[in-house]
């Protein structure tokens, strides 16, 4: 487009750029603030003097963190749950999405299964019966309590199913001509051509596992079984503020926990997300278009 640009137009352009830049800055300032606090002198940070740049730079908090066994124990549990849980999630997701992507002519029970999984997605028995069930299964304080209950994400199954439906039928027909069965067709035809979609869902699943704290909080009684988010939640967020009715006391309690040390913990727990984020960003736009607004 070639248009002569008036002064007022260019001013509006500048204003738009400014607004966007400010909004984007607001999005990352809290993160910068956390990083700055974690690198600052303890007294300065406690006094609230640190904004977005560290004062009297020191790595003391990070050194202290290195000797915090419980933190790294929780970190390791979270890594394990991402790997084990993520793998199980994806295997189940792929093998469920494939038969559901068939037409009813090719797989007669398809709609029955479809309504069933949709129902489990839309209706739930609620927290209490779920908790009692997990207790009865003996999963309390077991690592598998973080993996098994959420092993099937119906939402992801539907997402991948819709993607599989967009795979050209000719590919499958060619495989069938060569005498391939469903398992072979799935792994050798569908999975390879759907890698972008599978990568997207895998990354979202991994982030979901990394970020969840609630199952760890109610299903793990011993602190050494906490995943990282639960550990942080118990330590920083939940310093027994629930039972306090005096604003003065609340204020004081908030001050007891060491700001710099906590900020270091928060920042380290963000690092895995920040590391996969560039890859996430490359994939998730395609991923979003898969599921949302089609047709």
């Amino acid at each position: 487009m070639v248009i002569s640009r008036k002064l007022s137009d260019r001013m509006a352009d500048a204003a738009i750029l400014l607004i966007l830049a400010l909004a984007a800055l607001v999005c990352i300032l809290p993160i910068l603030n956390t990083l700055a606090v974690s690198l600052s002198d303890k007294a300065k940070a406690e006094a609230g003097l640190v904004l977005f740049w560290p004062i009297d730079v020191t790595f003391a908090s990070y050194e202290k963190l290195l000797s915090d066994q419980l933190f790294f124990n929780s970190f390791w549990i979270s890594v394990k749950r991402v790997v084990v849980g993520g793998t199980l999630n994806m295997l189940l997701c792929i093998v469920m999405a494939y038969p559901l992507s068939k037409e009813r002519k090719a797989f007669r029970a398809r709609n029955l299964y479809m309504w069933f999984i949709l129902f489990t997605m839309l209706f739930s028995g609620g927290l209490i019966p779920w908790y009692i069930l997990i207790t009865r299964l003996g999963l309390i304080d077991s690592f598998w309590a973080l993996i098994l209950p959420g092993a099937v994400s119906v939402f992801n199954v539907i997402l991948l199913m819709n993607f599989f439906r967009g795979v050209p039928k000719e590919l499958e027909e060619a495989a069938l001509m060569d005498g391939a069965g469903p398992w072979y067709t799935l792994w050798k035809v569908y999975v390879p051509v759907s890698l972008p979609a599978i990568a997207t869902i895998t990354l979202f699943t991994a982030v979901g596992h990394w970020n969840s704290f609630f199952d760890g909080m109610i299903l793990m009684n011993k602190p050494q079984n906490y995943p990282l988010q639960t550990y942080i939640q118990q330590l920083i967020v939940n310093t027994n503020l629930q039972n306090i009715s005096d604003p003065e006391l609340l204020r004081k309690l908030q001050e007891i926990s060491s700001r710099t040390f906590n900020a270091a913990k928060i920042f380290v727990s963000m690092i895995p997300i920040l590391m996969v984020y560039p890859y996430l960003q490359r994939f998730f736009i395609t991923g979003i278009r898969l599921g949302a607004v089609k047709e």
């Binding site: 038969p99 559901l100 299964y113 069933f116 489990t120 019966p129 069930l133 098994l148």
Partner: peptide, 22 residues
């Protein structure tokens, strides 16, 4: 096709349907 769905369906029966009886 049924074989592919059964493992996932079992998970859903245990962790979604059973709690509904609760």
């Amino acid at each position: 096709y049924h074989m592919m769905l059964i493992p996932g369906i079992c998970f859903l029966i245990v962790f979604s349907i059973l709690p509904m009886f609760g």
